[in-house]
């Protein structure tokens, strides 16, 4: 194996797709409200990776700036989401998503 060779950008995209799928998987199988939220962060990170890859491919600065905006929105989302989790915990005294099913059919 020649270790000096370049890495194809498709490998980065495949890694991004794998991380995104693992995020969806975590969203489905995790039973704790906080870890479900962490899976959402994982999916956001996976999308950021493909943004950076395409920014490198087309030599565009704006792709990287989009990632910057996604990071800002993720920070705002994390703050509000965790505040909602605290409010839910105060009202229901549980973090298990199976017990928080008031709006479920």
């Amino acid at each position: 194996m020649n270790f000096a060779q370049d890495v194809p950008l498709t490998w980065y995209l495949l890694l991004s797709a794998a991380l995104f799928s693992l995020g969806i998987m975590g969203f489905l199988i995790k039973r704790n409200l906080i870890t479900v939220f962490m899976s959402i962060e994982l999916m956001l990170n996976a999308v950021n990776l493909s943004f950076v890859t395409f920014a490198h491919q087309w030599h565009m600065v704006k792709g990287q700036i989009f990632v910057f905006f996604v990071m800002m929105v993720a920070a705002a989302e994390a703050a509000v989401g965790l505040a909602i989790i605290i409010a839910v915990f105060r009202a229901r005294a549980t973090l298990a998503v199976d017990r928080i099913d008031l709006m479920k059919l």
Partner: peptide, 17 residues
């Protein structure tokens, strides 16, 4: 922020369903 909330709410082991 995540670790802070986990510790604040004293989140334990999740039940596997």
């Amino acid at each position: 922020l995540f670790v802070f909330v986990v510790m604040l709410l004293n989140a334990g082991r999740e039940e596997r369903t």
